[in-house]
Design a binder for these strands. Structure first.
Lengths: 338, 338
DNA sequence: TTGTACGCGTTATCAC
DNA sequence: GTGATAACGCGTACAA
C-alpha cells in the first residue's frame, strides 16, 4: 500500500502491470477491447496501487463530466428535500452525480449558479426555483448543457419544462368542497408569487367562477407554517367566515389548521374544510390528516433525469420539451365526504 | 455571440484579445500579475465570447478540485435536509461546491460513495451516515482527501469527528423529568443503532441509574414518525405506564405524542411528559410544542467546512480532530415545569 | 509584465 | 489486441 499524499495515475498502474497506458485506459472503459490476460494484470496492479480513474481528466477529453447541477432554494423544506433526494437517486442510477447549488443567499441567484454549472462543465442543470435570465439559458445551451425547469412556467425555448396540471387539481378540489356543502370559499397563498403557486390561485378562482362563486383570497409572507397561521387570522376573522379554504401548500395548511383549531376553536372538517398541496409527510400525520394533492416526485425526477441522460446518447430521438404531470388527490379527513 | 455546441477555451479568448494564452490564465487567477491594460482586453474578449474557466482542467493542474462530497442517507428527513442545506451554504461561502451522494440504496453504501469522491478528486468528504471501512479511510487520506464524520463515534484516525455531548443532554432532560415529578421513565428508540442514537440511550439510562431509577426501553423500526406510534403502543400498554418518555428523535416524538393523545387519551404534559432531540421545525408547531434539544446545525456546518478549507492553505496549524458540541435544551410545553 | 514550453491524467486515433 | 502519439484546457516555471 502506497502512502503518498497524491493520487496514483494510469501510468503508474501501467508500469506495474507491464503494459501500456492505453491498456489501463481500455480496462476501465466499458465496451473497449482488452484481452482477458491484460485486463487481469491491470486490475491487479490497480487494486494494489489504489488506482481510481480521474473523472476530471476523463471529463476533459470526453465531452461528458457526469455532473448534473441541482439548483434551488429552500432545500430544507420537506417537499424540496424529497425532490432533491429523488433527483440524486435517479442521477446515480444512470451513472451521473449531483452537484447542488443553494440559491438561498445568492445575489444573482440562479444566473450565478448556472455560471458555476458551466465552469464545472456539467452535462446539465435542473432548476427548482428562480427564473434564469434568457441570455444565461442561451449560454448554457451553447455550452452543450441541457436544462430542466421544474414547476416554472417560463417560456424559454430549449430547456425541458416539467409542470403539474394545477388547473385540473384546482377543479377537483373545488368539486370536493362543493360536495361537502361549502359555499364560502377561501384561498390562502404566500406572497412568493412563483409560477406554480400563482397557477393554483388562478386555477382555483377560475374554477369557482365557473360555478358562480367568489373566493376570498389572501397572500402573506414566505411559503411556510407561520404564514399559514397568519393567513388563518386574516381569513377567519372576516365578517363572513369561510367554510372551506385551500392552502397553496401543505406547510401553510398545517399552520392554518393549528390556528383554526387552537385559536378559533374550529373543528375540521365539521366547521371548516381544508385542503393543501404537495402531500408532504406531515400531511399524513394524524394531528392533521390533511386532504391534499401528491406531487409525483419520483416521476418528476425520472423524467428529468431521462431527458438529461438521453442527451448523451446521440441515437435517441428528441423527447417533447414540455411535460405536464397530473397531481393526484390524496383523501384524508380534512374535507367532509359529500 | 457564438453559437457552437462546445464551450470556448482560453486560447480563443487569447486570440480575440490579441494576447497570449497565459495572459488569459493569469487574468482569472487571483493574485497573479497582469497589467490593467491586458486584463481589460482579456475580460472584454471573455465576455464577448462567453468564456468560463474550466474547473475540470483547473482541478487537474492545481491539486484542488473545489469539490466536497456530502455522503449520507435519509436526505429527505427534516434534520438531514437542514444539515445538508447548511453544509452547501457554508461550502459556497468559501468558494467550494457540494457534490451529494445518496447512500440510501447503495450496496457498499459509504465505501462506494467514497470511491466516487476519489474519482472526482474531491478536496474532502463529509459523512453523515454509515461507517466507512478503515481501509477506505486510509485510501481517502492517501489521495489527499480530508474527511469529516458527523455524529459517528468511530475511532478512525485522521478524519475530523464532530459529535454532540449526548451525555450532558441526557443528564439535563432527566433532571427536567424529575423536577416535573416523574419517576416511571421510558426511552423510545429506533432499531437503527447508529452511534449517536445509542449514545443517547446509554446516556439516559446511565443518568437514571445515578438516581437509582430504572428505564423502560423499547427499540423499533426506522427513525421515523410511524415508529414513534408503534413505540407508544409498546410503552403505554405496559402494566406500569411511564409518566415520562424520552424519544430519541423529534420525528419519533411526534408519532409518540399523536398516538398517546389520540389513542390513549393522554394529556401532555399533565399525564405524560415527552422530550425529543434535533429541534426540527415540527417540534415548534403548536400541535406538538415539543421540548427538545437543538442540534447546532449551523455550527456543525461551519466547523466542518473550516476544517476542510484549512486543508488548502498550508500556513494553518492543525485543528483538533475531535470536536464535541453542546446540544442546548429548547423548552416548550411537553414537560411540566417543576 | 509577457510569452514559450511543458505537465496534469485521460481518451481517441492510428498504425502495427 | 496492443502501443505510440496527439489532443483536451489549464497552471506555471522559465526565460525574455
Amino acid at each position: 500500500m502506497k502512502l503518498r499524499n497524491s493520487s496514483v495515475s494510469a501510468r503508474e498502474v501501467a508500469a506495474r502491470a507491464g503494459v501500456s497506458r492505453s491498456a489501463v485506459s481500455r480496462t476501465f472503459t466499458p465496451g473497449a477491447s482488452v484481452s482477458e490476460e491484460t485486463r487481469r494484470k491491470v486490475l491487479e496492479a490497480a487494486e494494489a496501487l489504489g488506482y481510481h480513474v480521474n473523472q476530471l481528466a476523463r471529463g476533459l477529453t470526453r465531452q461528458e463530466s457526469g455532473i448534473v447541477c441541482l439548483i434551488g432554494s429552500d432545500l430544507g423544506t420537506p417537499y424540496r428535500a424529497n425532490l432533491m433526494k429523488a433527483l440524486t437517486q435517479h442521477l446515480q442510477n444512470v451513472g451521473k452525480v449531483a452537484m447542488v447549488i443553494n440559491t438561498d443567499r445568492l445575489d444573482g441567484s440562479v444566473d450565478l449558479a448556472l455560471r458555476q454549472a458551466i465552469r464545472y462543465r456539467a452535462d446539465g442543470s435542473i432548476i427548482l426555483s428562480g427564473m434564469p435570465d434568457k441570455s444565461i439559458t442561451r449560454l448554457c445551451l451553447n455550452n452543450g448543457q441541457r436544462l430542466v425547469l421544474i414547476n416554472r412556467d417560463d417560456e424559454h425555448d430549449g430547456p425541458l419544462h416539467i409542470n403539474l396540471d394545477e388547473a385540473a387539481a384546482m377543479g377537483a378540489v373545488l368539486m370536493a368542497f362543493l360536495r361537502a356543502g361549502c359555499r364560502r370559499l377561501a384561498f390562502a397563498n404566500s406572497a412568493a408569487g412563483t409560477p406554480s403557486l400563482m397557477a393554483r390561485e388562478k386555477g382555483f378562482i377560475a374554477a369557482a367562477a365557473t360555478m358562480g362563486l367568489d373566493v376570498m383570497t389572501e397572500r402573506h409572507g414566505f411559503t411556510c407554517y407561520d404564514s399559514g397561521r397568519v393567513l388563518a387570522h386574516r381569513l377567519l376573522t372576516r365578517k363572513e367566515r369561510p367554510d372551506a379554504v385551500f392552502c397553496v401548500t401543505d406547510l401553510i395548511a398545517c399552520g392554518f389548521m393549528d390556528a383554526a383549531r387552537q385559536e378559533f376553536g374550529l373543528r375540521i372538517p365539521e366547521d371548516l374544510c381544508v385542503a393543501g398541496f404537495d402531500d408532504i409527510e406531515q400531511a399524513g400525520w394524524s394531528s392533521y390528516g390533511l386532504t391534499t394533492f401528491s406531487q409525483p416526485i419520483d416521476d418528476i425526477a425520472a423524467r428529468a433525469v431521462a431527458w438529461l441522460d438521453q442527451g448523451g446518447r446521440s441515437d435517441a430521438q428528441p423527447l417533447p420539451s414540455f411535460i405536464r404531470l397530473p397531481a393526484s388527490m390524496v383523501w384524508r379527513q380534512s374535507i367532509r365526504k359529500g
